[in-house]
Design a binder for these strands. Sequence first.
DNA 1: CGATGGAATTTTGAATTCATAATAACTTTG
DNA 2: CAAAGTTATTATGAATTCAAAATTCCATCG
Lengths: 222, 222
Amino acid sequence: MSKIQHRNLYREVADRVLDLIEQGELASGDRIPERELCERFGVSRTPLREALKVLASEGVVELLPNRGARVRQLTLKMVKDTYDLMGALEGLAGELACQQISDEGIAEIRDLHGRMLDHYRNRELAEYFRVNRQIHEGILAASQNEALQEMYSNLSQRVKRVRYSKQMTDDFWRRAVEDHEAMIEALEQRDGRWLGQILREHLCNKLEVAAMDEVIDDRQRA
Amino acid sequence: MSKIQHRNLYREVADRVLDLIEQGELASGDRIPERELCERFGVSRTPLREALKVLASEGVVELLPNRGARVRQLTLKMVKDTYDLMGALEGLAGELACQQISDEGIAEIRDLHGRMLDHYRNRELAEYFRVNRQIHEGILAASQNEALQEMYSNLSQRVKRVRYSKQMTDDFWRRAVEDHEAMIEALEQRDGRWLGQILREHLCNKLEVAAMDEVIDDRQRA
DNA sequence: CGATGGAATTTTGAATTCATAATAACTTTG
DNA sequence: CAAAGTTATTATGAATTCAAAATTCCATCG
């Protein structure tokens, strides 16, 4: 594994720790072995500890006084709460986007929507999710609200490790696509209130939560 | 000034730095003098630097590589963006609160509301704002969504140093109180959607932004 | 007199060191 | 053999040290 290059070291280290968590090498609740990670990353304890403190403030890690850092346990409630929050943020993003977005911006999102529909028709789940995410990110970006985008991506990061997209009943999927149809229409009409409401209530996230149920339980048992 | 007691040192230091910023001793854009603060707090550079990194991730401070930390400049746009965000969060809190809050909880908030009205009638601005804040915090707490509360207080902290409540035209004030009347009604009817909408559009914050305009400009010129 | 170049100083970034708290290992004893 | 107490080991928290970068200060030159 390549050594880290020395610039903004603590942030670099934090990102590497996040990778380890996302890839499951550090599981929920695991103690984070300071010395070992230092050796592995080729850095001293100082930047690693700085990284851990930042990750703690971002809600990814838990610091127990005199007992080191652990990967924060995600309970089902925490994930639900986080998705509620993300919904609210997306709702705001939608409202703002309708005020701010350019016609080209709308065209781009409509284009993404078209591609998403193709993947839906072909039942290409992974591709569908990828484009789906691009649409949501596009709306976030169009809001032109940096703080909003920052918070959203922070929340998104928190729950990334339990994101789950396998089980997707036809019915849920169909309804998610319907939501997206409405979103596009609201966006083209620049009806911010409508778009905001759709996004806040968009069932995609709630669906994920439902599917996630047993996954989290599994991890907590482990 | 009393020395800091040594437990969770970096968080303690961070709070002290926040105090300095809030009290204006460290102004917007100011360089943060590492060595000096260390002496003042009676700690070494390590915990101070950890604190600064955390504050940077919380958006209060800016870290320039090899050039130290500065108090992050607040532009008017950033403050507006932040208030939009806070509105969205309060909106969500309102919706959730309607589902979660106990009858006693509602009674408490109604009580606060009554006291706020008294202060309004007596034109006691400071008292009014204090109780007003308690109401909003009460709704946040009733949402039972920890992530939401955490995020809200973080945002609130970011803009605390420019909070401004002097100019309050009678007309704005009257409308703010009207909003609150509606809020109480929505809460008592447990009409989450309505309460959410009121909170999202509650003009209190927008009012502050308007009043804040020249204040921020002043600071940026300095 | 102002601009440019180059030491001297200060500040920052990161590793190392040191003291203390927590954990593990090992006795001892009932 | 198990439980409790004690010692040894390890991990953590924070100060210190060291190298590199930036800034300041001063001298030189145009």
